[in-house]
Amino acid sequence: MPRYILKRLGQTVLTAWITVTVVFLLLRLAPGDPAVNYAPPNPTSEQLAAVRQEFGLDQPLLSQYLTYLGNLLHGDIGTSFQFRQPALQVVMDRLPYTVTLAVAAIAVTAALAIPLGVWMARRGDTAPELGANIATIAGQSMPDFWIGFVLLIVFAVNLQWLPSSGFTSTSAIVLPCLTIVVLQVALISRLVRREMAVNLAAPYLTIARSRGVSERRLTWRYAFANSSIPVVTALGTRFAAMLNGVVIVEVVFKWPGVGELVVDALSRRDFPLIQATVLVTVVLALVVQLLVDLLYPLIDPRVRLGQEARS
């Protein structure tokens, strides 16, 4: 077990390194000059050169990269061009908002999608199930930013029940959360249905039924317990993906999370801030994935980690 965790942590470091390298190279190789955004208006070439020198952008690519990696190893992930303060600090200020939104969204998703999926599996191939099936496909078919706007128009502008944007009160989380949940419920409930359908048709269930086990117990203690690993995996993966910034939803609702931060940093070509955001969120997502994998033996005693890493 400790060996397994060590191995996974090693993979996390490797993935994080590949990611920051790709981002670093993409930023430097792309056309355009970040110095323009940080020099005085109508800058002279001397002023631009001074800005470039201040940011270390006048160095050759390789030496910039080595300096960056060296600083990373010392725990320094760069200084934001626009905020003139450590990029890590800027990211950490925004991270709680994204985490709050992600936790709320995944909790609501699980609470809705699991019962819905179980119900669809039990009513397999009947007319109500076809209706629910088409509804979940519809849930996956709407652009998320559009769902956000429609919710805004209905609840914030017309009914004025809920605040429209930013993080002004606790009720501000309702609309962004709802926007995320529509798509996630559609995806997860279909997965639950698929997994449950397999287990509901399995021979062990027939045997249990013939012994007189109640339908409720058959559904939850037998079929659902055996479907739970893929479901937990999917919920974990979705949650990890949300930590990378629910970019679109954050932009629509002006939610002050890391997704909005990175879009803003991109438009200003704030290289250190972009790199820091990507690094922090990728590591966080990988750690969440690892924690989810560590849950497997608790859910299903047959699972031994390290022998077969993924089911």
């Binding site: 993935t15 990611t19 790709v22 981002v23 993409l26 930023l27 792309a30 056309p31 355009g32 993906a241 990378n244 910034g245 970019v247 679109i248 990175v262 879009v263 991109l266 438009s267 972009i274 990507v278 969120t281 990728v282 997502a285 990988l286 994935q289």
Partner: peptide, 16 residues
């Protein structure tokens, strides 16, 4: 394991 939308945004924002 890469954050997909971020990467796409990055490439499109940078390469036009």
């Amino acid at each position: 394991s890469l954050p997909l939308l971020l990467m796409l945004l990055l490439v499109v924002a940078l390469f036009g």
